[in-house]
Design a protein around this nucleic acid. Structure first.
Lengths: 348, 348
DNA sequence: CTGTTAGCGCGTTCAG
DNA sequence: CTGAACGCGCTAACAG
């Protein structure tokens, strides 16, 4: 920049050598407490700021991390990113936030640019396309050099830390809740089919179905509808509602939840009297639209913060731990107007 | 870092000096076409990547910009940021995206850290608190060294480029539209009172009222309700609706629009039969909730991209232009279900 | 056309 | 306890 005082200038003013200044400023015990204070005082007075670029060049560490998310229009990623970035700031790390736009190609480019710009670590939520293709070579390449943490959209094959919601458990409890309110014809709907998130939520749903049926089932009928993207959502919903009797939806992401919520009302269904809805990702919107939505909250900020903590720990070279930490964040269910009251069991 | 081939190594391999390599790689005409090709070939083969940190140190320019927004949970800022950041990438600029959280103090810290980390330019949307306090010294300080572009939330006193929506015109047309659908008791509601955006939208609303009244008015009654934050929104709405007869709202930001939308329905008002709503900032949510919302679209991505273009232009030292460019982006009104049909005028 | 030299600002031996 | 000297990787002035 050129609007900074250098270490050399401080040295001159203090009447010492530049290396003394460097040491003093970094609190080295080599320097006598007296001169250390003297130097610090005048550094502060002159508004000395260490030049980060020079430091980075010398230390081979940029003090920055990359964050790649598919997008931030959805409240989940937006809040996750805010959590991660604010935590990074707290720790004195700069963060480069980038968007893959759900595209494999862009994601690859971003990774390449991170190699060029030498970030010290990476937090990534995989793009849909990447998860669809299942090719992770670009990430493996970067992984050779720096630690990587996958958040939310993860993959099994990559050896790196992972932070995600307890998706399987979350779906299970969503299903249990619907059943407890008397719903029996339940559809699990996903518009983010290729993602790990979707797969796990679907898996949980199916597993819990089996469990419930094994225990009697009470006439439970479950169905799964998978889509990649929500463009055809309304058409599919139309067909679905015409063909089958349905009294509840569990929907794997927020936008699709809101779209379904709108569609149902526009077509004369009462929520929750005719059809109940549970979605994933809690936000101001879910809380405020009418009828308000019962949601599985992901605590997105927390997820982001946690991911950053995991990364930061890994970045301290001294730390050694399991090669591959798998962290699951506990979900919370927030019950609102889009689901019915729980029926009190009649036995005693 | 540390996983890169250096210029010196290439030099050895090619049997030339390092400065020759530097020049060759940068396409200097000083170097003969032959050796230039020779060097480039082996650089590519060895996967040479210029070390950006070293370059930055040498050139005193980091090749990065800062982007400060209040938050990205709202779709407007989220999309604005995505627009700006993606355009920055296109231009080979790294961008540091940060969040002020509507706090003056944080904003100040961010600015300070940008000075430390020597970004070459800044895009900022002011925090509410900053606009409330009206103190812009921290920004003026940074302004001495690098170009700054204000987007959306701007201030008059700062001499820098500004990019924003034509807020005044936008409110005017919103009001005109409501009137044309037969509404006469119209409230302009803002929950972002301290912002320039809110002030301009309110100004436009009031001006257009005057104009309409001057032209007869047809019984138009207009009212303004200002709040800082939407915590008390519901209470205020309750009082308002009890006291006055109201048949339409113009609401200055998206979240408040959605909250009002929910509140009205929860309390038995039909939209738009009883009350019409027009909001600002168009998003997937506004489009999909029921009844869908008539919105003034801000074209947020475009705003972000435009801001970046303006900044980039200013960053090319060679360019000189007006000290203070004021760019207004034209709004669009997207008519949906939350407003009534326009009444065809009966006079021929 | 090519090579030598000299830093950018900092941290880090290694002598004193 | 302090300072001289070197080098991180790159570019730019100046010679040849």
């Amino acid at each position: 920049m050129g609007y900074d005082i250098t270490i050399k200038e401080i040295a001159e003013m203090a009447g010492v050598s530049s290396s003394t200044v460097s040491k003093a400023l970094n609190g080295s015990p080599e320097i006598s407490i007296g001169t250390r204070l003297h130097i610090k005082r005048i550094a502060i007075k002159k508004g000395y700021k260490a030049n980060n670029t020079a430091r980075a060049l010398k230390s081979k560490r940029s003090g920055s991390i990359g964050i790649i998310v598919p997008e931030i229009s959805s409240s989940f990623f937006s809040r996750m990113v805010q959590g991660a970035a604010s935590r990074a700031k707290e720790r004195g790390l700069k963060s480069y936030i980038c968007f893959s736009n759900e595209s494999f190609k862009i994601e690859k480019k971003l990774i390449a640019s991170f190699i060029d710009h030498s970030v010290d670590g990476l937090i990534i939520s995989l793009s849909k396309q990447t998860q669809n293709l299942g090719s992770y070579d670009h990430i493996a390449e970067l992984r050779k050099y720096i630690p990587i943490v996958m958040v939310d959209r993860v993959c099994d094959v990559m050896e790196c830390d992972k932070v995600e919601l307890d998706n399987i458990e979350a779906s299970k409890s969503a299903l249990r809740h619907l059943v407890s309110t008397g719903c029996r014809n339940i559809v699990f709907l996903t518009t983010i089919k290729p993602t790990s998130v979707s797969k796990n939520r679907m898996y949980g749903f199916k597993e819990e179905c089996k469990t419930l049926k094994a225990a009697g089932g009470n006439g439970l009928k479950a169905k799964v509808v998978e889509m990649n993207g929500s463009d055809e959502l309304e058409k599919r919903l139309g067909n679905l509602l015409q063909k089958d009797f349905i009294d509840a939806f569990i929907i794997a992401d927020e936008l699709a939840t809101i779209k379904t919520h709108g569609y149902l009302q526009r077509n004369g269904y009462k929520i929750p009297q005719d059809i109940s809805i549970i979605g994933f990702t809690n936000s101001e919107i879910s809380k405020n639209i009418y009828p308000s939505l019962t949601m599985i909250s992901q605590n997105a900020e927390q997820l982001g913060k946690r991911a950053l903590d995991v990364l930061a720990l890994r970045m301290t070279k001294s730390w050694v731990g399991p090669a591959c930490r798998q962290i699951k964040i506990r979900h919370k269910m927030i019950i609102r107007e889009s689901t019915k009251q729980v029926k009190v069991k009649t036995n005693t």
